[in-house]
């Protein structure tokens, strides 16, 4: 498993071409389509990063908004005094550190507690930032003035998505990735073959959180004016879960399959029926959980396996006890 298979090389070349093609978009359009593409890329990055952790562990994290907001604030607080790339690194560190603390505190708990804890965490961080701002400054928000334009943000998000994909792929080939697959299959077995299950999950949560923090940092110049309510918007957390689940979290590229149609649809709905947005979100969440528990890609995979086995049928139909 150290050399590349032919399939991996083809996927790699295809991926590079797809990213290169996408990167040309600003040359064609600088208006509506670019802004839509920024949203798609943003959620592609967020959902893929989320899936790095939640896919193999099946822990549903609602902490996305907390990590994202920390990244945004890292930029907003010091954009006038420090160079932007350094602040992006700060965002990654802050979000990663928070993920580490939260992971150490909660990943020994069962999944249900984890969901609630992460939701509470995002809210807590938002309240703390709001309080700090009210206490130590007189302003409600922070201005972020840079000469970064929409297309620069797009390119940065695109590069981030590529890095997340590459990281995910490297993790899958590593001991950590193998450990996560074993944990996903049977945690008791995992412990008995010598895997420090808690540590593996924490490491993955840190990586995932750090990437989300970077996404938040990159987006700060786009918003221009940063307030706790927008930077730590809980809606971000929910949307990420919905889109990732819609696409399917078993494969690295699964979430993207959910992100592209969902962001386009969301754009359509918010323009025309903005009042119905929460309802539409709730309904789509229920629909996904009930109709597509493994996402679109999971369903496709199922169909493909069925097709394959029908093709190679009718050999053994023996099943295990």
């Amino acid at each position: 498993m150290n050399s590349l298979s032919q399939k991996e090389i083809i996927i790699g070349i295809g991926g590079v071409l797809a990213f290169a093609l996408a990167a040309c978009l600003p040359l064609v359009d600088q208006g509506y389509y670019l802004s839509l593409a920024v949203n798609i890329t943003l959620y592609a990055a967020l959902c893929t990063a989320w899936t790095l952790f939640s896919g193999p562990t099946h822990y549903v994290s609602l902490a996305t908004a907390a990590f994202f907001g920390l990244g945004t604030y890292a930029v907003a607080l010091w954009v006038d005094v420090l160079p932007f790339p350094l602040l992006v690194a700060f965002g990654a560190l802050a979000a990663g550190a928070l993920a580490g603390i939260v992971g150490a505190a909660t990943l020994r708990l069962s999944g249900v507690y984890f969901v609630i804890f992460t939701l509470g965490l995002a809210e807590l961080v938002r309240q703390i930032v709001t309080w700090a701002q009210a206490t130590f400054t007189t302003r409600m928000g922070l201005y972020v003035f840079t000469d970064l334009r929409e297309m620069h943000i797009f390119w940065m998000l695109l590069a981030l998505t590529a890095v997340i994909f590459l990281t995910g792929w490297l993790i899958n080939r590593s001991r950590l990735g193998f450990a996560m697959r074993i944990i996903g299959d049977d945690e008791t077995v995992a412990r008995h073959v010598g895997i420090d299950t808690a540590k593996s999950k924490i490491v993955l949560f840190i990586i995932s959180g750090a990437f989300i923090g970077i996404a938040g940092a990159i987006c700060a110049p786009r918003y221009g004016y940063i307030q706790p309510t927008s930077a730590f918007n809980p809606m971000t957390s929910f949307l990420v879960v919905i889109m990732a689940l819609l696409g399917g979290t078993r494969k690295l590229w699964g979430p993207i399959v959910g992100v592209i149609p969902f962001v386009i649809l969301m754009d359509f709905i918010t323009v025309r029926f903005s009042n119905y947005m929460p309802v539409a979100m709730g309904l789509s969440f229920l629909a996904i959980v009930f109709l597509l528990p493994n996402g679109v890609t999971g369903r496709l995979e199922q169909a493909w396996n069925k097709f394959q086995s029908r093709k190679s049928a009718p050999s053994s139909t023996e099943t295990a006890a």
Binding site: R181, D185, D186
Partner: peptide, 21 residues
């Protein structure tokens, strides 16, 4: 019996060799 259902037989066995001493 506890096997790792998503994996092949060889991967199941590998699991024992990778993380132990």
């Amino acid at each position: 019996v506890r096997v790792l259902p998503s994996m092949t037989a060889a991967q199941n066995v590998m699991a024992g060799a990778v993380f132990g001493h």
